[in-house]
Design a protein around this nucleic acid. Structure first.
Length: 824
RNA sequence: GGGGCGGUGGCGGAAUUGGCAGACGCUGCGGACUUAAAAUCCGCCGGUGGAGACACCGUGUGGGUUCGAAUCCCACCCGCCCUACCA
């Protein structure tokens, strides 16, 4: 080490030489190991764990490196920071990749992990690797299964037959959010999705819909809150029961109970269970054909966005409960089985979709609401629906009810008669967690001929995945075809039983990884309660916005469920969330292997060093926005780091440098202004200005060096401070230069430089002088100048006099420390 | 149709949140060093007019509030990303 350092003393900045050396040293010294310390304030800094898809691209770095800088800053600020890392290792891509390459998913996944660890280490982040957790480890998914059992025993997990979206290519069910686009294709392989009925496991997430809409306890970005709110999709209205002539009940949900008297027909979704029963023999053929067509349409491709309404009369009739009218029942694909009850009352006068449908099929359009500005309405003449509220008309006993009372009056009317009630409907569905796949945590349930559905006893967990399995796609869960695995004995009756062969949605695994980090080796429970009490909740969580409606809802839900079961505590798992934007390829397109525009961090590190890559990712973008990778712009930070390097290495200290009050004050001022700014910007996730402030300070120190200040204590302190301020962002070069300056190891165990507002204060300021709001002059004045004096100086300015054109000032606005505006 | 994000020099972006628009960089141009190049260093770099001092214009467009607007309000235009008949 010594000789190496001497060699480098005169050498150039070569990141590859110093970075790996310091990384090993830090690891060897367990510098970043987070240990409970009651005497210090804790900070749990979490960044979304990577999925084990092969290797990291620069986007991972973009999420993680600035987060690391902030975590390091907080640590220097005195917080006991935990910054853990792990891997989301189960899931479909692993299995698909394994199928393509004929390699076992486990082997593939763990090889990827090995590679990703190496890549992550090259970043020089302060991860506490001793807390690493991998969701595919039996010791991890043992507890995923344990959580499932808790949910099952508390009636939160339940099984039901359910039409699910099914990808014929991937041979699996898809969550609603994995079906994308107008033509309803699989998010992964773009194959059109079809419907299939299967017995599936669900979690009752809708029970928590209301609580999930409450964001009072968390500091999360508004767009995420909006996305979650829309995803949950709460709407208030009423459920109303219509009876068919055959006596069957058809329940509908409506947000407009006040329009009930205008319901002139009903529409069922083609898949509605009553369709068959209602349909008359004469209509059977037509209805059947339409139903087939509707299924085929979701199957193949949906027509244009504004496609014409289509539908078929079933031949059946229902009775409108408010006025006893007999109204026809139709089926149409604009009514969705997946929303509300799968049936609607159609009020064509006040709903545009119903209007279009009625016009096309010649059904009655009867206005029952008179919005403001209308004297009367004639259904025959209307050109479109009128969705506004208004005075109720043609509505029996409620006719004349004003707009603001219509909703409540209608609900009260329904409730009095027992034909309906106020109701809240959510777009959110219960969470379907069954996956007909191999590479996931097995659902720990058994099916016994005698005892029925039986949970695996907790002491038999984990239900381990067998490795000798044929994981190729067959259309069913591969575990079904394992010769022995699924056969077991029932823990209740000792008779033969079969294991559940579906595995869990990986979002289940990632809903609690932040808890496993607390104590990845703990075997008495999912986590060590002592660790939980100290570290939880997560103080800052960083990651991509794309998880707003999936992971980020699931993990909140999971926490709330477990709180209900006494496992976790507090209202929310993650207090502060911040989302970074996306790094695009150099061509401005989303990075993808097929486009060939993926930026490989290994290559960038090899070319420029980890510090330069980190600094560039911080400097080049607004963190929340992201943008295209620019191979030229990174040169700017490379040059900066080189300047810092030579500044430290080529400046001899110990000599008496140039001194002088002005020189010293001016450098000190910049130093303290930079301390303030870097701290503030790191706190606020404004990473680009962190680096620009550091560059400015470097420029200032360089200028001071040119003036011969090296050796002056103020200069030396400035250099030390620069390194300390750089330490969070560019940890390797900061450590190396710190050590070259003979300072005490490690820079990452130093405190954050103390900011002194007096030293940061300007003594001279430039007072802007405006005439009628336009800048006309600038006057150098002492910072603490009195208002009167400032006004005098401004009015006395020759230039100002000229622009005042001899007029008397009507008003003079004075902003201390800023400007004087003379209004004439 | 609904929702989100954004629009500032040739480019990435700053602007103490209503107070000098363009910090810090990249690119480009000019110069120094070099036999030459790279690297490095110095200078210039929003537009128009002017030899110049300087003046005028300028933050997507139009209006408004204000002593003062990139920033606040209203209307509109454009781009990107979600979402999609949500009863």
């Amino acid at each position: 080490m010594m000789t190496e350092q001497i060699e480098e003393k005169m050498g150039r900045y070569e990141p590859s030489k110093i970075e790996s050396r310091w990384q090993s040293r830090w690891e060897q010294d367990e510098l970043y190991k987070a240990v409970i310390d009651e005497s210090r304030e804790k900070f749990y800094f979490l960044t979304m764990l990577p999925y084990t898809s092969g290797d990291l691209h620069i986007g991972h770095w973009y999420a993680m490196a600035p987060s690391d800088a902030r975590a390091r800053y907080l640590r220097m600020r005195g917080y006991n920071v935990m910054y853990p890392i792990g891997f989301d290792a189960f899931g479909l891509p692993a299995e698909n990749a394994a199928i393509q390459r004929d390699i076992h998913p486990k082997e593939w996944t763990y090889a990827n992990i090995e590679n990703m660890r190496r890549q992550l280490r090259s970043m020089g982040a302060m991860w506490d690797w001793s807390r690493e957790a991998i969701s595919a480890d039996p010791e991890y998914y043992r507890w995923t299964q344990w959580f499932f059992l808790r949910m099952y025993k508390n009636d939160i997990a339940y099984r039901k037959m359910s039409p699910v979206d099914w990808c014929p290519h991937c041979n699996t069910t898809l969550a609603r959010e994995q079906v994308i686009g107008d033509n309803r294709v699989c998010e992964r392989c773009k194959t059109p999705v079809i419907k299939k009925d299967l017995e599936q496991w669900f979690f009752r997430i809708t029970d928590y819909a209301e609580e999930l809409l409450n964001f009072d306890f968390i500091d999360w970005p508004d767009p995420v809150k909006v996305l979650q709110t829309n995803w949950i999709g709460r709407s208030e209205g009423a459920r109303v029961v219509f009876k068919t002539e055959g006596g069957d009940e058809i329940e509908v949900f409506t947000t407009r109970p006040d329009t009930l008297w205008g319901a002139t027909f009903m529409v069922l979704a083609p898949e509605h269970p009553l369709v068959e029963k209602i349909t008359t023999p004469e209509q059977e053929q037509e209805v059947h054909a339409y139903t087939q067509e509707a299924v085929r349409q979701t199957d193949i491709e949906r027509e244009s966005l504004d496609k014409e309404k289509s539908g078929v009369f079933t031949g059946g009739y229902a009775i409108n409960p408010v006025n006893g009218e007999r109204i026809p029942i139709w089926i149409a694909d604009y009514v969705l089985m997946t929303y509300g009850t799968g049936a609607i009352m159609a009020v064509p006068a006040h709903d545009q979709r119903d209007f279009e449908f009625a016009r096309k099929f010649g059904l009655e359009i009867r206005p029952v609401i008179l919005p403001e500005g209308f004297d009367s309405l004639d259904g025959e003449l209307m050109e479109g629906a009128l969705p506004e509220y208004g005075e109720m008309i043609n509505s029996g006993p409620l006719t004349g009810t004003p707009a603001d009372q219509a909703f409540d009056a209608a609900v009260a009317y329904l409730e009095e008669r027992g034909t309906g009630r106020a109701a809240v409907n959510y777009r959110l569905h219960d969470w379907l967690i069954s996956r007909q796949r191999y590479w996931g945590a097995p659902i720990p349930m058994l099916y016994c001929e005698n005892c029925g559905i039986v949970p695996v006893p907790e002491d038999q967990l984990p239900v381990e995945l067998p490795e000798d399995v044929e994981w190729k796609p067959t259309g069913e869960s591969p575990l079904k075809f394992h010769p022995t695995w699924k056969n077991t004995t029932c823990p209740e009756c000792d008779g033969p039983a079969e294991r559940e062969t579906d595995t869990m949605d990986t979002f289940m695994c990632s809903s609690w990884y932040h808890l496993r980090y607390l104590s990845p080796d703990y075997d008495q429970g999912p986590f060590d309660p002592g660790e939980y009490d100290y570290w939880m909740p997560v103080d800052t969580y960083t990651g991509g916005m794309e998880h707003a409606t999936m992971h980020l809802i699931y993990t909140r839900y999971f926490h709330k469920v477990m709180r209900g079961l006494g496992v976790t505590e507090g209202p929310e798992p993650m207090l502060q969330l911040r989302n970074q934007g996306q790094i695009l390829g150099p061509d401005g397109q989303r990075m993808s292997k097929s486009r060939g525009n993926v930026v490989d961090p290994d290559e960038q590190v090899a070319n420029y060093g980890a510090d330069a890559v980190r600094a560039y990712l911080m400097f080049g973008y607004r963190w929340t926005e992201g943008g295209p990778w620019n191979p030229d712009n990174i040169q700017g930070v490379v040059r900066w780091l080189n300047r810092v390097w030579s500044l430290v290495m080529e400046t001899e200290d110990g000599e008496a440098g140039a001194s002088g009050r002005e020189l010293e004050r001016s450098l000190q001022r910049k130093v303290h202004q930079t301390i303030r700014q870097v701290a503030q910007d790191l706190e606020q996730f404004e990473f680009n200005t962190v680096i620009s402030a550091l560059m400015e300070l470097t420029n200032e120190i360089l200028a001071a060096n040119d003036k011969g200040m090296a050796g002056n204590p103020v200069f030396e302190e400035a250099l030390d401070t620069l390194l300390l301020l750089m330490a969070p962002s560019t940890p390797h070069i900061a450590e190396e230069l710190w050590s070259q300056r003979g300072r005490q190891y490690s820079i990452h165990q130093q405190g954050w430089p103390v900011f002194d507002p007096d030293l940061a204060a300007e003594e001279q300021i430039t007072l802007i002088v405006q005439v009628n709001g336009k800048v006309r002059d600038r006057i150098e004045v002492p910072a603490e100048i009195a208002e009167d004096e400032a006004r005098q100086l401004a009015l006395g300015s020759e230039i100002v006099q000229r622009f005042m054109e001899g007029k008397e000032p009507r008003d003079v606005i004075y902003v201390p420390g800023r400007l004087v505006n003379i209004v004439v």
